[in-house]
Structure formats: C-alpha cells, structure tokens
Simulated assay, not measured.
Amino acid sequence: MKSVKPGRGPSAMGAAGSVIAVIFGIFWTIGAASMGAPFFFPLFGVLFIIIGIVQAVYHFKNATSENRYSSFDIVEDGEEPDPLNARFGDAPQDVPAPDDGDFRFCPYCGARLGADFTYCGKCGRKLPDIP
C-alpha cells in the first residue's frame, strides 16, 4: 500500500532547528537593543523568535503525534521504515496489497503509471516489483 512517509525524523530535526532559531533571535534582539540600533533591528529579532516558536511547536507535534503529515516521500509499506517509530510509533501492521487495476502510482513521486511500467515516466526511478 502506498502511503505518505510518516516523517518523524525530518520533523524532529525541524523542531531542533527551530529551537536554535529562537535562541539566535533572542541574542539578536538583545544585541540590537543594547547597541542602540534602529527599532526595526530588535523588531526583526522578535519576529524571528515568534516564527521560531510557532515552527518548533508544529514540528514537535508532527514528530510525536500519531496522526502526522509529511510531504517528503510516498513509499510502499516496509520499503523504508521510519527510524523513530520505535520511540513514538506503533509496530508496523500487515496490510493487504491493493487492487492495482489498469494503473498504479509511483512510490517515489506519486505519478500515475500503467500496470506494466518498469520505470517511472516522471522521475525515472525503477519501480518495485508487485507480487
């Protein structure tokens, strides 16, 4: 079954990067205010802090919640396991193979393909064999 890759790892890295951005924003704001810079320099730091907090909350929730979203990859079950599922997720479940009909979709880019395609016409990657 094709699905959107859970993306716990990228979301966790996004949360860590957002925390670093917030720390940078704090130092920027304090430095700009203490040097007597024009008002828009400390204001830029405050804006940086606000955006960083919103992003950190979003990414942390996406990395730790059961229902999460990531548009990074579309993969087959068991093709590329999520490295953080052991900590935050459930054990993989056996899912029956879908009825492919006359067409199927590329697991890498999501392009619609004919049932007999060996390579994706959009991204050019070799398609996995369907049992």
Rank of each mutant, 00 (worst) to 15 (best):
I50N: 05
I23A: 14
D73H: 09
A32D: 01
V19P: 01
F27R: 12
A97I: 14
G14D: 08
Q55L: 11
A91W: 11
Y108M: 02
P96I: 03
D100N: 11
K5N: 07
I53L: 08
N85E: 14
C120V: 02
A56E: 03
P98N: 08
P128N: 09
F41A: 11
D129N: 10
P10L: 01
E76V: 06
Y69W: 14
I53W: 03
D94F: 07
S3E: 13
S71W: 14
K61S: 14
R8P: 00
Y119N: 13
C123L: 11
K61A: 14
F27K: 09
D129M: 05
A33T: 09
G36Q: 07
K2N: 13
L47S: 10
S3V: 11
A32F: 02
G110I: 02
P81I: 00
S70V: 00
V4A: 09
E66N: 07
V19C: 02
K122F: 06
E76C: 03
I23F: 09
L127Q: 09
D90I: 12
V46G: 07
N85Q: 09
L47Q: 13
L43Q: 15
T118Q: 04
I53E: 02
V54M: 14
G7R: 00
R87H: 15
S65W: 02
S70C: 06
L113V: 01
A63E: 13
P83H: 12
S70P: 00
F103S: 15
I49R: 05
C109A: 02
G31W: 09
F39R: 06
D77G: 03
R68N: 04
D116N: 13
A32E: 01
V46D: 04
A115V: 07
D82R: 02
M1H: 10
A16K: 05
G124I: 03
S70H: 03
I50H: 05
A21K: 07
D99L: 05
M1G: 14
G78S: 09
A32Q: 06
F48K: 06
R68D: 00
I50S: 03
G17C: 07
V54I: 15
G101R: 08
A12S: 12
E76A: 00
T118H: 10
Y119E: 15
S65H: 06
D90E: 10
R112G: 03
F105Y: 11
F41N: 07
G101M: 06
F72Y: 07
A32N: 04
P131N: 10
G121Q: 05
R104P: 01
G114N: 12
P96Q: 08
A33I: 06
